[in-house]
Simulated scan of single mutants.
Amino acid sequence: MCRKLKVGILGLGRAGRYMHAPELAQYPELYEIAAGADHAPDRRENLPPEFARARLYPSLDAMLADPEVELVTVATRNADHTPHAIRALEAGKYVVLDKPVAVTYPQALELKAASDRFPGKLFLRFNRRFEPAFNHVRELMATGVLGRIGFVRVYRHPGFVRRLDWQTLTCFHGGMLSNWGPHLIDQALQLLEAPVVDLWSDLQHNVAAGDADDQVKILMRGANGRVADVEISTTATLPGPLYEVRGDRGSLVVPVEEKIIRLRCLDPAQKLGALEAVPGNFPLAYGNPDEALKFIEEEIPIKPACGRTLQRGRVLAPGETPDPAGGYTSQDTMWSFVHRAITRGEPYPVTVEEGVEVVRVSELARAKSGYVPHESALSGKGC
């Protein structure tokens, strides 16, 4: 019989209520939400059913004093993530830390040092690493069917959103680079499969309130020559595909509906001879008139996740497409890996070192972009 872990959720706002709590609730045999903490009294009221048996606290310190809380999952504001995680580690708790795991690279190094002092206690909530489409793409890349990979694209266009909460303010470390950025940069680094040696980026503020970025473009080149294109935008009314991978024998695309992978590649039996450029007059034809290429085209259903997909706390039925206006979707799969790591000592798939690298690349992207908030934006009001 599995040992049930007792969890305290720190931060009872949108993430704590509609992401952490319902995801944990999918594993009643593994987890019990034993406590919740938030400094704001109204956030400790009108909580969803997952908190029915939870003790509620007005501060992190009060919850850390609860001896029954074994695991603290941190869902507070961005700048508080690292200090809250370190305090929980120092109190002897296991910690699941939401993104961004740190808001600066030096802060990420502090987190790494704390993790080293308390090995096996810190787990990064890079839940997008466990998405079915992403992992199916990685599997196809590994087969070699696409040949030598030269280009990967990771896009998210969560709809045209004129957002106005605190995540639109730079003084709170808001913006899409802090919000969606850690997820997609982590995925891009996994698909890049090599250290980043060069990076270009552009951040823009277009339709949201505040002064933080709502459109992100990052191009990264790996030491292996592969290029990763990352784009996040809440200004796109026509979303692009989620993933694209190009190799020297074929390409794949994952459309935004996230149900299939479109694959077009050379027949595995197709042999490609050496080519030599013709410097003189060439037949009036395009390409190579002496070569007949045979392609295979497939629409491959994306393998379902081992866990479940949720949208604002509701479990989606198998094959159901998330409502475009329904908000954030998430995978609960991550929590089964956390439980196995704590109770069985199995390695957690996301390392702290990988999280630190995501922060480093994010900070480099912000610096390379030269982003300056619009003069017309709020620029700090309300902070």
Rank of each mutant, 00 (worst) to 15 (best):
K4P: 11
L5P: 07
K6M: 07
R17W: 04
Y18W: 14
A25V: 09
Y27H: 10
E29S: 12
D38R: 06
E45K: 13
E45H: 08
N46Y: 01
P49F: 00
P49N: 00
F51Q: 03
A54R: 02
A54V: 03
Y57M: 02
P58Y: 04
A62Y: 01
D66K: 10
P67T: 05
E68Y: 01
E70D: 09
T73I: 11
A75M: 10
R77F: 12
T82I: 05
A85H: 06
R87N: 04
E90F: 04
A91F: 01
G92H: 02
D98M: 01
D98A: 10
K99D: 00
V101I: 15
V101Y: 03
P106V: 00
L111T: 09
L111N: 08
A113V: 04
A113I: 00
F118Y: 13
F118P: 00
K121P: 00
L124Y: 02
L124G: 10
R128L: 13
A133M: 06
L140W: 12
R148H: 14
I149W: 12
V152A: 14
R153I: 04
V154W: 05
R156M: 11
G159E: 13
V161N: 12
R163V: 00
L164W: 14
D165C: 05
T168K: 01
T170H: 02
F172D: 06
G174V: 07
M176G: 11
S178M: 15
H183M: 11
I185E: 09
Q190R: 15
D198S: 15
W200G: 11
W200V: 11
D202C: 11
Q204T: 08
H205Y: 00
H205M: 02
N206H: 04
D214G: 02
L219V: 12
A228T: 04
D229G: 00
I232C: 01
I232P: 06
G240T: 06
L242I: 12
L242T: 14
E244D: 04
R249I: 04
E257K: 14
R262Q: 14
L263K: 03
P268G: 08
L272Y: 00
L275Q: 08
G280E: 08
Y286F: 15
G287L: 09
P289V: 06
E291L: 15
E297M: 03
P304V: 08
G307D: 08
R308A: 13
Q311A: 09
R312N: 13
G313R: 09
G313A: 05
R314M: 07
A317M: 02
G319A: 03
G319H: 04
T321W: 08
P322T: 09
D323A: 03
G327N: 04
Y328W: 14
W335A: 10
W335M: 09
R340E: 10
A341K: 00
T343E: 13
V350S: 06
V350D: 07
V352D: 05
V352K: 04
E353S: 13
G355W: 01
S376F: 02
A377H: 04
L378G: 09
K381L: 15
